[in-house]
Design a protein around this nucleic acid. Structure first.
Lengths: 123, 123
DNA sequence: CCTTGTCCTGACCACCCGGCCAGTTTCGCA
DNA sequence: TGCGAAACTGGCCGGGTGGTCAGGACAAGG
């Protein structure tokens, strides 16, 4: 049915591992209906595979710490976080402190950046 | 030894557009050597296609604001930024203020998050 | 029973942050 | 040559932030 609305799906590759990239390239080359993007071309979708080395140990964050972290990433102040989670500002500061420690960050901005970098949270 | 004619490449799909997702699913289903991940499975690579998000006007940030923003993303304090750029803390606060205004952020953490989201900076 | 760990709360304090005021120099442009 | 925009600096101040102390509730496991 209507192949008119489905020309070709253009895919881009962003893969750290050269071996995996090569295999995928070879496999996808033989598929009708899609092709790989040439340099600079805008792709409909991108195949990504990050080097797993960036998150060696998935840092053990408690559920509460993840809650606080998520709200921190939204730019919420301790007071806002406290209200949102139904806990006291003191407790929020406690969790933020733990976060700074575990993420090896110097402040909340640094903590969010670190967490985003290693995929703990999605910006 | 290396039977690296590896079994299958497991791919995950993260595509906003259902139509595109469906087409890709159909296309890739017929390719030997790779398969789609089942829910929760760890994939070797992920195919992503974000909604052509609104990055209408790449916000006009001055060079100095970009300098400050980059250091903010590293978790640097105003004092550190001042020292790094060879300017006074007051000037840093001035630029941070402009950044918060232009990025529609409530604080430096929010500013970094917004900037990262719309690709102004790379985390 | 007692210890351990996690989560939660409180208070104190030095410092940082963001917003406000006002002022300078430098530059491009009409 | 005048004029505005950008960059820079200063002081001031209310509120937020991060570090440190101390302690309570509650479940898991010795």
């Amino acid at each position: 049915m209507s192949e008119d609305n489905a020309p070709e799906i253009v895919l881009a590759l962003e893969i750290d591992d050269p071996a995996l990239a090569g295999r995928l390239e070879a496999l996808l080359a033989g598929v009708a209906g899609l092709r790989l993007a040439v340099s600079g071309e805008t792709a409909a979708a991108t195949i990504v595979a990050r080097d797993p080395r960036v998150m060696p140990d998935d840092i053990a964050l408690t559920q509460r710490e993840l809650d606080v972290l998520a709200l921190m990433a939204e730019g919420a102040s301790n007071k806002m976080i406290a209200r949102q989670l139904g806990i006291s500002v003191h407790t929020v500061k406690f969790h933020v402190g733990s976060l700074l420690d575990k993420l090896d960050a110097t402040g909340r901005t640094d903590a969010v950046a670190h967490a985003a970098r290693r995929g703990v949270i999605e910006l």
